[in-house]
Design a protein around this nucleic acid. Sequence first.
DNA 1: TTTTTTTAGTGGACTATATCAACTAAAACT
DNA 2: AGTTTTAGTTGATATAGTCCACTAAAAAAA
Lengths: 152, 152
Amino acid sequence: MSINNNTIADIRKFNRFYTNILGLFDKHILDTGYSFTEARVLLEIGLLEQCIANNLVDKLKIDRSYMSRIIAKLSKDGLVIKENSTLDSRTSLIRLTPKGITIFNQINEKSNEQVMNLFRGLSEKEIKEIHTSMMFIQKKLDSLEGLQDDTI
Amino acid sequence: MSINNNTIADIRKFNRFYTNILGLFDKHILDTGYSFTEARVLLEIGLLEQCIANNLVDKLKIDRSYMSRIIAKLSKDGLVIKENSTLDSRTSLIRLTPKGITIFNQINEKSNEQVMNLFRGLSEKEIKEIHTSMMFIQKKLDSLEGLQDDTI
DNA sequence: TTTTTTTAGTGGACTATATCAACTAAAACT
DNA sequence: AGTTTTAGTTGATATAGTCCACTAAAAAAA
């Protein structure tokens, strides 16, 4: 138990603080008229360029049937198209339509804006220090994955 | 626009990374048999020691009717008690029962454990540096609240 | 090659989570 | 006293997510 109680309390306080930040950050997603989950699917399709439903299920850990319905909705709304795969006719290749790309870009631009807003009022030096701190935290914690991920 | 695109990308990557960390962190809450929202209410009651439903509504930004049902459930399960207020008979004073305190402590201890697990494998020096980085980020960002919190 | 098993996806039924609106009763204000 | 506001409850409904059974095709085994 090499880590002391005040430090733990501080870190939990930071976690609450940053949960808040992230919550405010993501709220703009809802402006699109889609839920967080739907938006996650849309963004992932945009990143993967082309994929099948199961890729998304694995990557985003969303139930297959739920994914099926989300894709159906996005497809119905004209944000994605499903093209029958010739290699495996159980599957469809999914990708964004131009309309889907528009929303994808809109979400990304808004997310960038949010980051800029967060830093508004800070000096270049301060921003650089925060950036460095974040990269440091990520580097140190990423390597371990010391969390109990009890997914069986 | 003094903040460059790579920095923004890095920070968004950090945000995704930390969202993940926080998600894994909080999962243990569900072991209690209560949802995140229910647990938030329970924890808040524990922190406030004594409160009325409306305090919780304001603090946690949860709908009144939903709050009413959550408190009813916690009360039915014997985690909180509602005592009629003599000062304002529209309200009840809510506080944790011993059983509620047990769960409150259980959640807190488990949360502390999670923090310790996260740092397992890091040296004292590294932990100290991460702690410092977090406090720095919080100090810098807390003051501004530069986010567009569009809550009307 | 035929049979068996696995995989991808869909749809029905359901549960859990959350919101909205109408209402009661008490408190606060005029 | 009469009116308005506030605290809380309940019914109805919406939204999000899960579970299960099923179809059809692919992959593996016989």
